[in-house]
Amino acid sequence: MRPPRLALVPGEPAGVGPELCIRLAHRPRGHSLTAFGDRATLQAAAAALGLPITLTAPDAPGDRPGELPLVEIPNVAPARFGHADPLNARAVIDALLAAGTACLDGRFDGVVTGPVHKASINAGGIPYSGTTELLATQAGSDVVMMLANPTVRVALATTHLPLRQVPDAITRGSLEAVLRVLHRALQRDFGIDAPAITVLGLNPHAGEDGVLGDEEIHVIRPVLAALRDEGMRLTGPLPADTAFLPGKLRDTDAVLAMYHDQGLPVLKFSGFEQAVNLTLGLPYPRVAVDHGTALDLAGTGRADPSSLFAAADTCARMAATRFAARAAATGTEP
């Protein structure tokens, strides 16, 4: 099986993304990497770290430590560590879209992304709510956000919504769609034939039989019952304050939280450095770091590369799982 070919997008040029990409490029790996971004920014990051980097042609091998093929997408303004410039917003978006296009047309097998600066992108005149939404729109896919570390996978029924809007956003149709994407992704990207999914309730104590809210009765339970009838292995709705106990996590492949801060604090507490952010449902794997641009650390060499290392390893494993599934289905070599 050939090594997966991954597109690597550093993200905000003034943040820690470029230097983390340089560290990743120096790491031995069983997959190839090609960066999509600004040459001068990557060279400046390498100089700040004292790590020499050879930026090669886009079609060069991307599996040699210290070398990194580059699809050049120049910034408008020179990047300055710690100072996000809205003039470079277009280049950040263009790099993400170019990497997505390269996967959609089969040149690459997955996308690994560094952190972006949403405020700077919007200040640059580009309406932007997140890379998940950007790549989903480009691909025309229904997607689900999931974060993962070696302890637990947590998917989200809703993402970046004010808390008062969450109950209205969780409908039978939306919840069913999320569970179908999650179930399929666990099969396709993680090789789990019959994934076990734990679904959290929305209200404290999962509503306590309607005393603390009735969304569990009227929305969540009917959806779970219908999908169980199709053969899905679904547990819940469970109270969020007990669903993450080690004994329960041993029997689940992923937890579906109803809103952002219901599930993600547990995941980050259990292993923030190894946590990654996945976009499920795209035609290709996309994995991002689970941290921000850390402008205050940019150029200092103190940024921890663990999340980007984990993102690249996870993306490569997901791509390899898809290779193997296609090979099994067609009887051909992946």
Rank of each mutant, 00 (worst) to 15 (best):
L297P: 08
A194E: 14
R90W: 14
L20H: 01
H205T: 00
T235E: 08
V16C: 11
C21I: 05
H183K: 03
A40N: 09
V287N: 07
V266L: 07
I220W: 07
A311Y: 08
P222F: 14
R153L: 04
R80Y: 15
F323S: 01
L161G: 12
D168V: 01
G281V: 09
A319G: 14
T242Y: 15
L175A: 04
A79I: 08
S270T: 15
A123C: 11
Q43P: 07
F190D: 04
A288S: 14
T235Y: 14
P69F: 03
E176F: 10
G301W: 04
S129D: 06
T300N: 04
L238N: 01
R286F: 09
R2S: 12
Q43S: 03
R39A: 02
S306K: 15
A155M: 12
T56Y: 12
H205A: 00
A95H: 13
T279C: 03
A35L: 08
N75H: 08
R188Q: 15
R180H: 02
V154D: 00
R302W: 07
A177D: 12
D168F: 03
E273T: 07
T137M: 06
M258E: 08
A45K: 13
L97R: 05
D251Q: 14
T198A: 13
F36Q: 03
R302K: 09
T41R: 04
V116S: 07
V276D: 00
L135C: 06
R5L: 15
R64V: 15
T159R: 02
T137F: 10
L33E: 05
H218E: 10
G271Q: 09
R317Y: 10
A136M: 10
M1V: 14
R153G: 03
D94A: 08
A316Y: 04
G15Q: 04
Y284N: 07
A47V: 05
A148S: 15
H183S: 13
D193W: 04
P239Y: 14
N122G: 10
T252G: 03
G207D: 04
P283S: 05
E216Y: 04
I53Q: 06
D109E: 14
G140N: 03
L24V: 08
A155T: 11
I73S: 11
E176M: 12
V16T: 13
D214H: 13
G292F: 13
V287H: 06
V116D: 05
D209G: 09
V143G: 09
A327K: 00
V166I: 15
L264Q: 06
L212A: 01
P65F: 02
P283K: 03
A185V: 02
F108I: 09
G17R: 02
R322A: 05
L179Q: 06
S174M: 09
A102I: 12
T158H: 05
F323M: 08
T54Y: 06
L96D: 00
